[in-house]
């Protein structure tokens, strides 16, 4: 363990996975493989940001064109409390996943699993809150996008012509984000399973780090979606 990362020292049998991990044959050493994987992940994150940028551009355009209608619709259809709680939950999960990586780097196997577990619970909480408090009631009331919009209004609220459009942006942006949360939770589950088998440690935590980066991206997107959708005007 006190040798260079490239060396495979001792007999593999007595070592855990991360101790005897050796890079794939086309790399020169473990460190090159690690930095390359991380660079690849960052490039992938830029593609994810650009994917979401489409939604942000659409949002911005329609927000400019229909500022008042969007403000009204946002106030009426969305409850900032749900959004705020979900924001806090995602921020905490981001923290725990950062801590999990730290735990792996310091070989704190127990806390690594605890932190990953908390992260997964937070992710699931986010999804459940989204489905139970937002998607399902909205679906039942007909507050759905575009051509299927059938909400007649209530309590003096008459929907404007652009409510379907606002809901369109809301549903699509949050659904794409939600699918990323789901994928992130699955990936974190995979990491937890590997952590259970002691795959991560100071010398090898590439997948954990990259899944962590992905999870932070999910958080980043939400940091922007929350004020833009829930706190308009």
């Amino acid at each position: 363990m006190t040798t260079a990362p490239t060396d495979m020292t001792g007999d593999g049998a007595s070592q855990t996975y991360w101790e005897r991990y050796r890079h794939q044959p086309h790399w020169r050493n473990n460190d090159d493989e690690y930095t390359a994987a991380k660079l690849g992940m960052w490039l992938f994150l830029t593609t994810e940001l650009l994917l979401f940028s489409g939604m942000f551009v659409a949002y911005t355009i329609y927000r400019i064109l229909h500022a008042d209608e969007f403000a009204r619709a946002s106030h009426y259809y969305l409850d900032w409390r749900v959004g705020a709680v979900n924001t806090a939950v995602l921020l905490i999960s981001s923290f725990t996943v950062a801590m999990a990586i730290r735990n792996a780097q310091l070989n704190q196997q127990f806390w690594l699993k605890i932190n990953l577990f908390i992260t997964i619970i937070c992710g699931l909480f986010f999804l459940v809150a989204k489905l139970a408090l937002e998607y399902w009631p909205k679906y039942q009331k007909g507050e759905v996008p575009g051509g299927f919009f059938s909400y007649p209004g209530s309590h003096g609220y008459v929907p404007s012509d652009y409510d379907p459009l606002f809901l369109g942006v809301y549903w699509v942006a949050t659904a794409i984000h939600g699918s990323h949360v789901l994928i992130g939770v699955l990936l974190l589950g995979w990491c937890l399973w590997r952590a259970q088998k002691r795959h991560f440690g100071p010398r090898h935590f590439t997948s954990l780090e990259n899944v962590g980066l992905f999870w932070h991206l999910v958080d980043l997107i939400w940091i922007f979606l929350f004020p833009l959708l829930y706190l308009v005007g």
Binding site: Y62, G146, G147, F148, P164, L165, V172, I176
Partner: peptide, 26 residues
């Protein structure tokens, strides 16, 4: 990725009529 989101929105537009590119829905 921008093509990805574009054609994804187009497909969603066709399946769920979300209205982002559809002038008849604003």
């Amino acid at each position: 990725p921008v093509l990805g989101v574009t054609v994804l929105l187009l497909a969603l537009e066709r399946i769920f009529k979300i209205g982002i590119f559809d002038p008849s829905l604003g």
